[in-house]
Computed example of a mutant assay.
Amino acid sequence: MPDNPVNYGIQQSGGVSQVGNQAVGPGAYAVGGGLTASGPADLTALLTGLVEVLDRHRGHLPPPARALAADLRAELTGPQPAPPARIRTLLQDLAEAAAPVTPVAVAVAEVLRAWQGS
């Protein structure tokens, strides 16, 4: 252990904290999802944005999340409209599988929030 260890921890006492993006320590980075919706009409744009985020971070996703992302893309771009329940299930599964990749997790959460509100 070094003589002068650096504590990159976070302390809070009292109050309320809402953190959107946060990174701590050497090499850490935080990236926001950048997806917001104001109503059901924005859902298509959110899904398009999610696909872009998935493409950007594909190399960081664990294999199960990559497979779910491919399934979601196929459902969204297929010749027949995908059943809403299928899209919701894929989004929920992707949220869990992509949790280690913050930008993807944030983007999926925003789409799910909009999906549930539509």
Rank of each mutant, 00 (worst) to 15 (best):
L46P: 03
G117H: 15
G117L: 10
T36Y: 14
P81H: 09
H57G: 01
L46S: 01
G15I: 06
V31I: 12
G25R: 04
V31H: 00
E52W: 05
V104C: 07
Q80E: 15
T89D: 13
V6G: 02
V104K: 05
A85S: 02
S38P: 00
R58G: 01
L90E: 14
N7C: 15
Y29A: 09
R88I: 10
P62T: 12
P63I: 04
S38N: 11
G78Q: 10
L76T: 00
R66Y: 12
P79V: 11
I87F: 04
P100T: 12
Y8Q: 13
V31L: 14
V108Q: 02
P62E: 07
A98W: 01
D3R: 10
H60R: 14
V101C: 04
L47I: 00
S118G: 14
G33T: 07
Q12E: 11
G117F: 02
A41H: 07
E75M: 10
N7V: 13
N4D: 05
P84V: 02
T48Q: 08
T89A: 14
N7Y: 12
T44S: 13
Q12R: 14
A105H: 15
V31Q: 01
S38G: 10
P63K: 07
R113K: 15
L112R: 01
A45D: 06
Y8W: 10
R88C: 04
A67Q: 13
L50G: 00
P26Q: 05
Y8S: 13
A41S: 06
A23M: 10
V19P: 04
V19A: 10
I87G: 03
A114N: 11
Q12P: 04
Q18F: 04
P103Y: 00
R86T: 07
P100Y: 12
G32V: 08
L50M: 02
L76Q: 09
Q92V: 09
V31K: 11
L91P: 05
A45M: 05
W115R: 01
P79A: 14
R66K: 04
L76V: 08
G32Q: 05
T77A: 06
E110S: 14
A65F: 11
G117A: 13
A107I: 00
P62G: 06
P81M: 15
S17R: 10
H60N: 11
L50V: 00
G32N: 12
P63Y: 14
G78Y: 12
L94I: 05
G59M: 01
G15E: 01
R66F: 07
G9T: 14
Q92P: 02
G32F: 10
D3T: 10
G20S: 01
Q92E: 06
Q80S: 15
A105T: 00
R88A: 08
A69I: 02
P64H: 13
L46W: 03
R66E: 09
T102Y: 03
A23L: 03
G15P: 09
R86F: 05
S17Y: 08
L112E: 13
T102G: 02
T36V: 15
V16L: 15
P5H: 12
L112T: 04
S118E: 09
P79H: 10
